[in-house]
Nucleic acid binder design. Structure first.
Length: 416
RNA sequence: GUGAGUGUAGCUCAACUGGCAGAGCAUCUGACUGUGGCUCAGAGGGUCGCGGGUUCAACCCCCGUCACUCACCCCA
């Protein structure tokens, strides 16, 4: 019986795993400078946590969740995103009693039951950051700037930071009716999907990629023109903040969020040709979510980077693997045991040491050492055992030095 | 959920559109009784995704099925 990983769920093998380590390290270092602390959240939660926050009619909830009943007949779900869990933990542990704002980050797998595609998987990984406890737009600017910093430090460029505001409880409904009024008389020009969207969620017609729809919606009202005073001031505050920090951005008034809890600021980092999966990170403000989860009316903002979407963009994708400092070639059982012990001692001293395990010709052992890229090789055979000295060969310059069977001597010899 | 494409060695791909399943790379061995890379020689490795059908004969044609890939919807 041959097993395969499940559809859309993949192994991350070396050397690519080193690219992942680099992404995680760079993110952690950057988060630290901005005062974000790691929070480790469960990957499984009660189903209702997601249906309530993400929205009953969102695509994620309607068709993309890994939901099942546990043995206690409770409906549970593998998390499709991180914000809901974070806010749950924030409220559950009364973290609003800590000084505001509270800044958190998380790194981990998310699950969505979708048809896999380039840059889209059923298990994928997000690097997310969330701030709770302030609605100051300078925080919006700061978090966008932090996202920018992480991507830059990873050597990624050629991306756009798109921002917009999607309004709040007061102004969004007004805009929705205005938009419907504007679209109503030319519905025939739009595609089938847009006609469906017109009833369900008219805002989505603004995001349609069908060329005829792009043409047809020209001149439609844009949400940023309908923002209430508060939202408008907030949006300007964000733009001002980004300008102060010299973060280039573009305003995309057609941006739409797939999750219901977003308010005001929404942003997206896009890269590459227009089409699918150009978003490598996305985020926004969710000022009503904490209260929705039974906490005080505390605002929040966050983003998530799609790890799978930046891996291919990282220039160091072809990271050269590090190589062992020393490889022991052995001939005979006694030599093998001797190097077994020396190998262990040298590792204690901090070296990366490999040895030959199976009996094979010296030639093939040398070949193996070479394939591993070993910097030095020690040959231990009958002659060496007789003399009590072995030779270390530097694989690069081919020099050989005689050493005693002593971890200290060997260490000294190869650190020259 | 919808549509299209592709499944042959560990990897990348051939096989005259029906006639004995191949190459390159990789692996292992040898040339060189105990010294790697280069070169040369050889070896191992296949239920041609799976099941059925047509045929004297199927990797090739037909039907079904599964998997993978890409795209749509949507999203990180």
């Amino acid at each position: 019986m041959q097993f395969r990983s499940l559809k859309g769920i993949q192994d991350i093998l070396p050397p690519e795993s080193y690219v992942w380590q680099k992404i995680e390290e760079t993110s952690r270092e950057t988060f630290k400078k901005y005062g974000y602390h790691e929070i480790r959240l469960p990957i499984i939660e009660s189903t209702e946590l997601f249906t309530r926050s993400i929205g009953e009619t969102s695509d994620i909830v309607e068709k993309e969740m890994y939901t099942f009943n546990d043995k206690g007949d409770r409906s549970v779900t593998l998390r499709p995103e991180g914000t809901a869990s974070l806010v749950r933990a924030y409220v559950e542990h009364h973290l609003y009693n800590e000084p505001s704002p509270q800044k958190y980050y998380y790194i981990g797998p998310m699950f969505r039951y979708e048809r896999p595609q380039a840059g889209r998987f059923r298990q994928f990984h997000q690097i997310g950051a969330e701030v709770l406890g302030s609605e100051d737009p300078s925080l919006d600017a700061e978090i966008v700037s932090m996202l920018n910093a992480i991507l830059r430090r990873l050597g990624i460029d050629g991306f756009d930071i798109e921002i917009t505001s999607i309004g709040c409880k007061t102004c969004r409904p007004d805009f929705k009716t205005e938009l419907k009024k504007s679209l109503a008389d030319r519905l025939g020009l739009f595609c089938e999907d847009c006609n469906r969207r017109f009833d369900l969620n008219p805002l989505r017609t603004l995001d349609c990629k069908v060329p005829s729809c792009i043409e047809a919606r020209k001149g439609s009202p844009a949400i940023i023109d309908f923002l209430c005073g508060e939202c408008s001031r907030h949006m300007n505050g964000l733009k001002h903040g980004l300008s102060l920090l010299n973060i280039p951005f573009v305003i995309n008034p057609n941006m739409v969020r797939g999750l219901d809890y977003y308010t005001r600021t929404a942003f997206e980092v896009t890269q590459g040709s227009p089409g699918s999966q150009k978003a490598i990170a996305a985020g926004g403000r969710y000022d009503g979510l904490v209260a929705e989860f039974g906490g005080p009316p505390i605002p929040g903002i966050g983003f998530a980077i799609g790890a799978e979407r930046i891996v291919p963009l990282i220039k160091e994708s072809l990271t050269v693997r590090e190589s062992p400092d020393l490889f022991f070639c052995t001939l005979g059982k006694e030599a093998s045991e001797k190097s077994f012990v020396l190998t262990s001692q040298l590792r204690e001293k901090g070296l990366w040491v490999e040895m030959n395990y199976d009996t094979s010709s010296l030639k093939s052992q040398m070949r193996k050492a070479d394939r591993l890229g070993a910097k030095n090789v020690i040959v231990l055979g009958e002659d060496e055992l007789k003399n009590g000295r072995a030779t270390i060969k530097n694989m690069k310059d081919k020099n050989e030095i005689a050493v005693a069977f002593d971890a200290g001597d060997i260490l000294k010899a190869i650190s020259k």
